[in-house]
Design a protein around this nucleic acid. Sequence first.
DNA 1: CTAAGTGCAAAATGTTTGCATACTT
DNA 2: AAGTATGCAAACATTTTGCACTTAG
Lengths: 149, 149
Amino acid sequence: MVPRAKYRTRQREILLAYLETVPGVHITAGDVCAYFRQQGVPIGQSTVYRQLESLVDEGVINKYIVDSSSPACFEYVGAESHEDAEVCFHCKCEKCGKLIHLHCEELDGIQAHLLAEHQFRLNPLRTVFYGLCEDCCREMQSSGTGASL
Amino acid sequence: MVPRAKYRTRQREILLAYLETVPGVHITAGDVCAYFRQQGVPIGQSTVYRQLESLVDEGVINKYIVDSSSPACFEYVGAESHEDAEVCFHCKCEKCGKLIHLHCEELDGIQAHLLAEHQFRLNPLRTVFYGLCEDCCREMQSSGTGASL
DNA sequence: CTAAGTGCAAAATGTTTGCATACTT
DNA sequence: AAGTATGCAAACATTTTGCACTTAG
């Protein structure tokens, strides 16, 4: 795990500023590097990786790992993670990439259960349920791909 | 995605035989290779990767992807059990990085709930609960770092 | 001034692939 | 015989790291 950022460096601000312009969008570290390179903004890739990891650590962005042979995706969620009011869960469709925000008491119960029975203090802000959304689920059934997970 | 195996080769049988001896255990492709190398069983690593992928495709083993910088884990779940394969959830400690494998009916209920109430078909193989493990949780309380999530 | 962050290039890691050979059916 | 699997090594892609240099506080 990477330590939290302690300085506001130029690179961090630029990176953050960029991420804020694409909330809810999933981009890879490579995407970010490519974007800056194309824009002529000089930021080293190791800095990108390090800062992204820091931001994940701080809960400003989410990190999604979908497939072992594809890069991790990052997503700006800053606003949500800072307000402590409504905790919401995320469901991410593995097929279309759609991200669904869920408010649900039943799911909140998971938190209590994990704590009581498994001594695990869940952090909902960073937990993402992966699976298939309604649309993709239907689409998959009709297309006969008997992949019923 | 890799095509299904069509031949019963020696390597496939050996691999399968080994996997059957460690049901429910999570091993990486590297683990498998190392084991065979140590046992003097000559099986190439590409074969291991290819066969594992085939077996995943056939539902004989599960593949877990938890972290982008750690290898995928495989777990034998049996030839027959396709639909009702015993899947386990993962809890990952954000602090120490520990990975906890959880098998729990209560958590299985989440799957049903998400499907029934939110039309979302959860894929437990990809879903990871983030939070604090028991040890880190206690450690944090005692060290007065009032981080109560 | 000091601790933290940067950037480069190189290493490490995990996985895939090209291709000639060997095996299964 | 025909198609499939194997094994090696090399390619690949992503991420991490060592280290000298710069910068924020």
